[in-house]
Write a protein that binds this DNA or RNA. Sequence first.
DNA 1: ATACTTTTCATCAACATTGAAAACTTTGCT
DNA 2: AGCAAAGTTTTCAATGTTGATGAAAAGTAT
Lengths: 110, 110
Amino acid sequence: MKKNRLGEFQELVLMTVIVLQDDAYGVEIQRDLEERLKKRLSVGAIQTALKRMVEKGFLTSEFGEATQKRGGKRKRIYSATPYAHQVLREMRDLRAQLWDAMPRLGTSQA
Amino acid sequence: MKKNRLGEFQELVLMTVIVLQDDAYGVEIQRDLEERLKKRLSVGAIQTALKRMVEKGFLTSEFGEATQKRGGKRKRIYSATPYAHQVLREMRDLRAQLWDAMPRLGTSQA
DNA sequence: ATACTTTTCATCAACATTGAAAACTTTGCT
DNA sequence: AGCAAAGTTTTCAATGTTGATGAAAAGTAT
């Protein structure tokens, strides 16, 4: 019954949420991921990914406090569910298994 | 000009092509991946992924010999381009970087 | 002809990506 | 105080790409 897919981009956003912990809100996630990818991302790309992952039970969200900075609007802070951690590990393990099964082109094997 | 995205599923199919080497054709890829995922896949899912990856320069393909088995139709054998290998490594490294940056919930860190 | 293996094709739902608009918050001016 | 301006963040709508299904076609051996 459940739609469990976790897309390629969603996975990166999810991991970034975990990395940023209490600072995991839209714009900051965008900044962090842009730096890692060395590639410009649009606001909406992040936000749709976040929204869909909330719907599927990978993330929960709540509003944080507004900061004292000029323009410091309240942030919606995201955090990953235990289920999200589990799925991330499963995908990592699956890929690791495939890497192990791949012939090593640079080594002694043909 | 080219659209270089490599989706989540495409990535798995691509890795399976590399694993299977000379046996990397549609139905066999399907069988191998079904076993790893422990999940039923449709023929078309594999074939569309393969076709699109050819268009984008991740794969090349050529027909192999027909086998002697009853119903042994000629197989279209796929192989990964150097570019595909490069992109796979980049994605692996990016995810590894994110795993390293993630707080370890099970260890001594808070 | 019949049975079997594999690919091709058409189709629809979910994901990726964009940019503008809206919502909110502080600052500065009168 | 009151109000406009400017800054930060989220929401929304719209479009192209990927994911997933199953039936049909193509080809090969019995």
